[in-house]
């Protein structure tokens, strides 16, 4: 076989495989959206799920997913950014920094189910938080923190070194430089990273099976007392999220329209992820302009 022919075949294979990947994504998205979107209406998005009858919705699950995401971000963002700043600005190159980097790497590689089990043992049982939004949020924090640390560290390292020097030479404290000079420049990248991470949190299920639970108490959206069991914002109530719901419906769903519900839920989940992706791109560009130029 001549070299030219080989080259042609190889090029063809590469292009064919790449096309296959694109087709896979298009096919999967198309399948979910076509099957799911027809099922999505206001009733589906707001109604309670049904166990045996048809016509159940995903209202509480959707609310739980969003609530859990917000709670997780509230906990993760300050901690993750703090640790990221330590890595970028305070850590001296040496054995300790190398080990912390290893910790971050290992932590982000732990299977989510193992982290979920840890949450079950420590948060649900030992700390007695029970199957709850709080347990779920804390477990998701464990997941999300390494990601936030990396994003923050990278964002700070990308700020030109001269910015820091200028601050130092003006006699600013390191902390003042970090918060007032470097952070505004690094923030767009951090926000983009956070939104992408939020997409991941939104889709996570394995860790939540054992922490946030598989059930939701009947929610009363007029009750905003955080200690009441039926209050949507009670952090100590169990909360089945949308992702967990998809899993549950697929593996033990009894209602006659289980397949449609799974498709509709998947469509909602995928749409949310798509929105997070677009938002991240858009926000990154917009914020960069806003933070670095006109005040």
């Amino acid at each position: 076989m001549s070299a030219k022919l080989k080259d042609r075949i190889a090029t063809f294979v590469i292009i064919a495989f790449s096309a296959l990947i694109i087709a896979l994504l298009v096919g999967m998205l198309g399948y979910i959206l076509v099957k799911g979107i027809s099922h999505i209406d206001w009733h589906f998005l707001t109604a309670e799920p049904e166990t045996i009858k048809a016509g159940g919705g995903i209202g509480p699950e959707l609310f739980n997913s969003v609530y859990l995401l917000i709670l997780t971000l509230i906990i993760t963002i300050p901690l993750g950014i703090g640790a990221g700043i330590y890595m970028a600005e305070y850590a001296k190159e040496g054995r300790i920094t190398v080990s912390i980097r290893l910790v971050v790497e290992v932590l982000s590689s732990f299977p989510s189910i193992v982290v979920g089990l840890f949450g079950l043992l420590v948060l649900v049982n030992t700390f007695n938080f029970g199957f709850s939004v709080l347990s779920g949020a804390l477990v998701l924090t464990i997941f999300n923190m390494p990601l936030m640390v990396r994003v923050t560290e990278q964002a700070f390292r990308n700020v030109p070194r001269e910015q820091k020097e200028a601050g130092l030479a003006m006699g600013l404290s390191r902390w003042k430089i970090i918060t007032s000079i470097l952070l505004p420049v690094a923030l767009p990248a951090i926000i983009t990273g956070t939104i992408l991470a939020a997409g991941r949190i939104f889709g996570e299920a394995a860790a939540l099976l054992f922490t946030a639970g598989l059930t939701t108490p009947k929610l009363d959206f007029t009750d905003w007392n955080p200690t009441s069991l039926h209050s949507p914002i009670n952090p100590l109530r169990p909360a089945e999220t949308l992702s967990v719901h998809i899993w549950k419906v697929n593996s033990e769903g009894l209602s006659p329209d289980a397949a449609e519900i799974a498709a509709g839920s998947s469509a909602v989940l995928v749409l949310m992820v798509l929105i997070f992706n677009l938002l991240a791109r858009w926000a990154g560009r917009l914020l960069y302009r806003k933070f670095t130029s006109i005040k």
Binding site: E165, A169, T292, S293, I294
Partner: peptide, 21 residues
């Protein structure tokens, strides 16, 4: 050092204004 630097100005080869107004 911080107090010292507050009293001594410095300008570099490459301009490094803060990313602010």
């Amino acid at each position: 050092v911080t107090v010292l630097r507050q009293n001594i100005g410095m300008v570099w080869q490459r301009p490094n204004p803060f990313y602010k107004s």
